[in-house]
Structures are given as C-alpha cells and as structure tokens.
Design a protein around this nucleic acid. Structure first.
Lengths: 111, 111
DNA sequence: TTTATACATTGCAATATTACGATTAATATT
DNA sequence: AATATTAATCGTAATATTGCAATGTATAAA
C-alpha cells in the first residue's frame, strides 16, 4: 500500500530507518558533504554546486533540517546552513551502534 | 518525476545513498537485527517475528540480498539467511567514512 | 504420486518520493 | 518606492515504494 507500518516496529528500529531514509538520496549526501567541506555556512552556491533546480535543493534541505542534521539561519537575503553537531553526533552514535551489532556473529551460510 | 538523477552525483555519493536507502526501512532493520541476534540462520520464523506478510518479508529480504548485506542458502524446504560479513564490513566502512567527515568543522549558525 | 511446507514471483492498489515551473515572501540595493 | 536577489512553498507529473492476495516452484513427507 505504499505506507510503512511503523507501529509494528520498535522505536529504535524506526529511528535507525528514519535516519537512513533521509541519507538515502545522493543529493542529500552531496549537500551534507558540501556543507562540511566549506567548514562553515553555505548559501546560494549550493544550487549550482549540486546541479538540481532550486526548489528541489530547497526540498532536500528541508528534509535534512527536519531530521535535525543541519540547521539554518536567515542572514540577509540568503539562508545560512550548517551542520547541527549535537544531532550529527547523536545520529552517528545511533548508526554506529547498529553497525557494530554483528561483531560476535559467525558465518553460517556457505553461499 | 520520482526519478533520482544519479548521473549528476559522484560514485561515492551514490554508493552511500544506495546503502542508506536499503537501511531506510524499519522492517529491514528488524530483519537484520533478528539475523544478527540469532547468531545463525533464520528462516521462515522471520515472518512471525516481524509481523508482515510472507511476500512482504520476502521482498525486503531480496533488497537486502541485492545490496549484498545478507546471503541465503536453500536447505531443504527452507532458506537460510545470514549476514555477509565481508560486505557488512565494507558497508560499515563506507558509512563510517562519511559519518566521520565533520570532525574538523566548527559551528557557525547561531540557531 | 499425492500432499504439505517454505519461499519466491506476479500483479495490483495505495501511498511516497523526486523534480521542477510558477509563485510567494523577505530582505537588499538603487 | 521600485527593483533585484534569494530561497521557501505550492501544485503537479512522473516514478518508486510498500504491502498483500494469488499464484508459482521446489523440496520433503506420506
């Protein structure tokens, strides 16, 4: 039905999936890399740098902001975006926690 | 248009996004956690454990398999799935590499 | 061989996502 | 004030995803 049955999963599972879903688009990865690379706020150059139309970039920025991984302030006619370090670290911790789960597991399938 | 313009992004960006996209559903997180927890293969019990219909679980398994994060072998009438450790570690490395990018960045936005 | 079991595949309906043109809102510049 | 600049929002088309019933396939058990 195109609708995800979030209610049957744990908070943690939904949380991990929600983060991963937002990271699941190359434009959003590109935006994050660009913000990080600039070591500060980025403004309008994003549109030319990413290569998508301005409304599209704006939409991706909104999703990143909703997740809390970036934050922005209006400065003049432009908007200034940067990483929300506190949230980024939390997201990193949640993903790392999941990614490190399998340390003890052994292979069992042969193919 | 619902279609992702992968061609305008780097291989790395597409790679990160592809991994994250597959992890971006709670059912697939639940399946992975279940496989890891059992330390060995899980078969049809996944369906009762996850709480989704068998074709739906089968579809999620297919996506995980396509990404290479799990592998499966037929054993009798059932199929045995487990983590593909080599690929899991590679996926972990790719994600970690991205998640650790911002170590040097400083805050600049005030809100 | 027949029947049961376990899983994959197909087909479909509901919903979500992606992308962009047009428009709007807000501030800067003149 | 008039105009320019920047980015958000709205509306919409194209495509993707989610979920499941029905069906198909393969092995096991009888």
């Amino acid at each position: 039905m195109g609708i995800t049955k979030s209610e049957i999963f744990t908070k943690e599972q939904n949380s991990i999936a929600k983060i991963a879903k937002v990271l699941g688009h190359p434009a959003r990865i590109a935006i994050l890399q660009s913000i990080i690379k600039s070591q500060s706020c980025i403004c309008g150059d994003l549109v030319t740098e990413i290569g998508l139309a301005q409304p599209t970039v704006s939409q991706h920025l909104k999703e990143l902001k909703n997740l809390g991984i970036i934050k922005g302030t209006i400065s003049g006619t432009s908007v200034c975006y940067c990483i929300n370090h506190e949230n980024w670290n939390e997201i990193k911790a949640i993903l790392n926690n999941f990614l490190n789960l399998n340390n003890l597991a052994e292979n069992c399938c042969k193919i």
